[in-house]
Simulated assay, not measured.
Amino acid sequence: MTPRLADALRDAELIHDGATLDAAIARMAAEIHADYRDDDLPPLFVTVMHGGLPFAAQLAFALGELGLDLEFDYLHATRYRGQTTGSGLAWLHRPATPMRDRRVLLVDDILDEGHTLHAVTRWCEDQNAEEVRTAVLAVKLHDRGLEDIEADYVGVEVPDRYVFGYGMDYHEQGRNLPAIYALAE
Rank of each mutant, 00 (worst) to 15 (best):
119 A>K: 05
65 E>A: 12
172 E>N: 14
118 H>S: 11
153 Y>A: 06
119 A>M: 05
28 M>R: 06
113 E>I: 04
35 D>C: 10
21 L>K: 09
85 T>Q: 13
58 Q>A: 15
177 L>G: 00
160 D>P: 01
177 L>S: 00
81 R>G: 15
181 Y>G: 00
184 A>Q: 12
125 E>L: 15
53 L>Q: 07
2 T>S: 11
106 L>K: 03
133 R>A: 14
120 V>M: 12
114 G>P: 07
180 I>H: 00
171 H>Q: 05
106 L>G: 02
87 S>H: 14
109 D>S: 07
21 L>Q: 07
110 I>T: 13
50 H>I: 12
135 A>I: 06
175 R>Y: 03
26 A>L: 11
181 Y>F: 15
8 A>Y: 01
58 Q>E: 14
124 C>H: 07
56 A>K: 03
61 F>A: 13
160 D>R: 07
164 F>A: 07
104 V>F: 00
181 Y>N: 02
54 P>F: 05
6 A>D: 15
69 D>H: 13
149 I>S: 08
170 Y>W: 12
169 D>T: 06
21 L>Y: 08
1 M>N: 08
44 L>G: 03
78 T>V: 04
7 D>I: 11
80 Y>D: 06
34 A>M: 05
2 T>R: 15
101 D>G: 00
48 V>S: 02
173 Q>W: 06
151 A>R: 05
99 M>S: 02
57 A>Y: 08
124 C>D: 05
82 G>Q: 04
80 Y>E: 04
98 P>R: 10
134 T>H: 10
118 H>P: 00
162 Y>R: 03
55 F>W: 03
156 V>I: 14
55 F>V: 01
140 K>H: 05
30 A>M: 07
90 A>C: 10
107 V>C: 08
6 A>K: 14
109 D>H: 04
112 D>Y: 12
26 A>R: 11
12 A>H: 05
122 R>N: 13
58 Q>P: 01
173 Q>Y: 09
62 A>D: 09
7 D>V: 09
16 H>A: 00
157 E>K: 10
140 K>N: 04
4 R>P: 01
162 Y>Q: 03
171 H>M: 02
116 T>E: 06
75 L>R: 06
150 E>A: 15
148 D>Y: 05
163 V>M: 07
175 R>E: 07
76 H>D: 10
